[in-house]
Design a protein around this nucleic acid. Structure first.
Lengths: 112, 112
DNA sequence: CTTCATACCTAGACACACTAGGCATAGCGG
DNA sequence: CCGCTATGCCTAGTGTGTCTAGGTATGAAG
């Protein structure tokens, strides 16, 4: 029996979501995550760049390298497959949250 | 800089929550998870038992073995430290959900 | 006898996030 | 000049947790 992984990389989902909103480079994704989470999501470069390579390898992202103000910058955008993956992972995340809420926060009065 | 892990084992949290509600043995925890999630959380024994040992090793659970109807049964209950850990993990989960919601579902009209 | 439900157990594989570094340019202040 | 900060990128290795793929056993029903 083949099980769906319980949580398929929270960071993948977040990266896809950020890039979906606007094509972005690695450093900008880190900034966006830190900003939007009120500082809670404070990822290291060692986390984000392998995630970006992985997602590009998987065909979910495509990238273009440029030099901006003397610095190389690699901007990623979502592919068609990436949009599909994003939708799927959003669904999986919502499912997991719903399942965990039922268990972790539970309905009061549930004496099964 | 020491980062808090993004998600400290969803299964640990679920197990603690189930056992908090009622002291339980492994098989019963699996059943409860499957039931309360509408079949979505269908864990294998290979997942639950190491998790139970780990949590007991960490001092969050304590157990008693009995024989019921010819079958050995090990019932786990939450320790005081386990209650503290449960509270902490609930908080961490809520934080992660909030952070991810801000990013993955985003506020409509957020064009920042 | 076989199958299913109820119980438990374990080793190894795999994936991913984190740690701990490293490289570089540009600008500012001392 | 140097040191620090901000902006960009990169990589190897470690640790952890979940999944896979098995295994054990008893009792009941067909």
């Amino acid at each position: 029996m083949k099980r769906e992984p319980m949580l398929a990389g929270p960071i993948d989902l977040m990266v896809l979501a950020v890039v979906d909103r606007r094509p972005s480079h690695g450093y900008a994704i880190l900034s966006a995550l830190r900003l939007k989470s009120g500082g809670r999501l404070d990822l290291a470069e060692g986390t984000i760049y392998p995630a970006l390579y992985r997602l590009e390898q998987a065909g979910y992202l495509a990238s273009d390298a440029r030099t901006v103000s003397g610095r190389s910058r690699r901007t990623y955008r979502l592919t068609r497959a990436g949009r599909t993956a994003l939708r799927e992972r959003r669904r999986a995340w919502r499912d997991l949250v719903a399942s965990m809420d039922a268990i972790v926060h539970g309905a009061a009065g549930d004496h099964g």
